[in-house]
Write a protein that binds this DNA or RNA. Sequence first.
DNA 1: TACACGTGGAT
DNA 2: TATCCAAGTGT
Length: 330
Amino acid sequence: MEIKDELTGWYRQYHRKLIFRESGDPYAIWVSEIMAQQTRIDTMLAYYERWMKDYPTIEALASAPIEKVLKSWEGLGYYNRARKLHEGAQMVVRDYQGQLPANLEQLRAIPGIGNYTAGAIASIAFKMRAPAVDGNVLRVISRLLLMADDISSQKTHKKVYDLVYDLMADSDPSDFTQGLMELGALICTPLAWKCEQCPLKAKCQAYAAGRQAEFPVKKAKKAPAEVDLITIIVPKENQLLLCRDWQDGLMEGFMRLPQFTELKTEHLKHLMKKKHVFSHRIWHMDVYLADASQIELKPGWEYVSLEQLDNLSIVTAHRKIIDQYRRKYL
DNA sequence: TACACGTGGAT
DNA sequence: TATCCAAGTGT
């Protein structure tokens, strides 16, 4: 049997029943693809369901204020995805009467839609013969063929794209695309692969050679920079001091606790130490309690009532600190 | 090309 | 605890 038939047959029998696979609505598929980027399916599911209730159509998303959109994304990470999805919705309303175009080039020109997502939407929503090369596909294909190319290079992506394009000839593009990704997610996993259950095991070179662990080939990423910070909690009459005046460009549009690289702390009460790991940097935070009279207000700083706290977009690192502080001291 | 960009789960 | 990483995109 050909790979495309093994794969689509396996997919039809064994795929997970995921809520975003049900409607077939191109917008729903778009949202799910953006949310799934670099994110576990289990993690994004709750966000997805809430999102589709809050913004059931492209028009609804396009007309929502960005502050609300970011609040909906709070905790999911990579917040540029939410901004671009919002911009993208506005573009689709403006240029395409609110309908996603069934055209690779035009999809690719929508903010937040890159090569992978364009291929995913085209093949899954519009049944086009369009490869969607993601991390799963790179892993599956590189093992299948013992591909020694570094999967972080564009050249490799192009090579895999062309291979997949050939492989998916005369198949159902939607089941093929999702099948390849589902295989990577459930069977051909980075660790603890389940080759005995794989529909492609008879054709897989890595399986035959017992060299699954060596693929895919990718170069090591550099270690995140570590930063020591002094973070302060300043309560005042049932309020807490928050600010918007950061300079690091991280999580733009979200509020934080005031934070310093240097601050005299001898008159402050030390509350806790916290470590927060980002993909590219690490915050080591010493959290102190300060009295409102000890702190000079700067532009962009404001006291926020505890009731308002839940409705604001706050960076996750500090949301956790605030929650812990409230549980322990309030 | 290399790097910035978040978070939480698995091992 | 340390490490890796999970359906990438923009610059």
